[in-house]
């Protein structure tokens, strides 16, 4: 069962289990929670149980009702919300089952974008995230090209004209291999031709995930894969 706990200067005055549909708060004695203090209106506020929710409403009180330091007119109470009325605080504690029901809300919601930006900015600076990395192929032998940045989500390697990384050779496939940037990272896939694809000396017939400083061999070409910060490129 949910509870309202009346407190004054961090001292618990009284606990009120929520066993009815509605609880009233005010200075008058007929209220369920009576607070005998001049800052409190006769009928100050009420809490209604609506389904699994508890809705707090200010009854146009003189000195207003606050939840977690914010003035409210009506408010959907969450576990451990602090209701401030005059100098008194009423702590709302939802029951285990209410909490389960509330957290089990399967309604999909969209985060407010300003809030999101703030949140992400905070976390981004805290964890040093937000730096985009880009894959690079560095030729170790077989070519004068030097380095190729993998700016595309899918880079094809082979002798066809549409390849991002063009290699020659009689047995080189039109597209011999392809490197794709996937949610899990960069993956190289053998796509065809007579030239074998090797990663760290192992023949690859399908796909393998690329890690920094892996060596890739295609015929006489030898390349090294690594990632660097996109900004520094």
């Amino acid at each position: 069962m949910a509870k309202l706990i009346l407190m004054f200067k961090d001292q618990v005055m009284q606990e009120f289990p929520f066993f009815r549909e509605s609880m009233t708060i005010g200075r008058n004695p007929e209220n369920n929670i009576q607070i005998d203090n001049l800052a409190v209106s006769g009928h100050h506020a009420k809490v209604d149980k609506v389904g699994s929710k508890f809705i707090l409403t200010d009854l146009q009180s003189t000195n207003s009702t606050f939840v977690n330091d914010k003035k409210i007119v009506s408010h959907n109470l969450k576990d451990r919300d602090k209701i401030q009325i005059g100098k008194h605080v009423i702590l709302f504690l939802s029951s285990e089952t209410d909490r389960a029901e509330q957290s089990g809300i399967d309604e999909t919601m969209i985060l407010d974008t300003d809030q999101q930006r703030e949140l992400l900015a905070k976390q981004g600076t805290a964890t040093g995230q937000g730096i985009k990395k880009i894959g690079v192929l560095s030729f170790l032998s077989g070519s004068e090209i030097g380095e190729v940045k993998l700016i595309k989500k899918l880079s094809r390697i082979g002798k066809a004209d549409n390849c991002e990384v063009k290699l020659s050779g009689l047995f080189m496939g039109d597209t011999a291999a392809a490197i794709s940037k996937r949610p899990s990272g960069y993956t190289i896939t053998f796509t065809g031709g007579m030239t074998k694809l090797k990663v760290n000396g192992q023949v690859i017939k399908d796909s393998v995930q690329l890690n920094d400083y892996d060596t890739i061999e295609l015929g006489s070409y030898k390349l090294q894969f690594y990632q660097k910060e996109a900004e520094s490129i």
Partner: peptide
């Protein structure tokens, strides 16, 4: 959108 491109197999 998050877009990914890969070779079919």
């Amino acid at each position: 959108a998050e877009v990914f491109e890969i070779e079919p197999s």
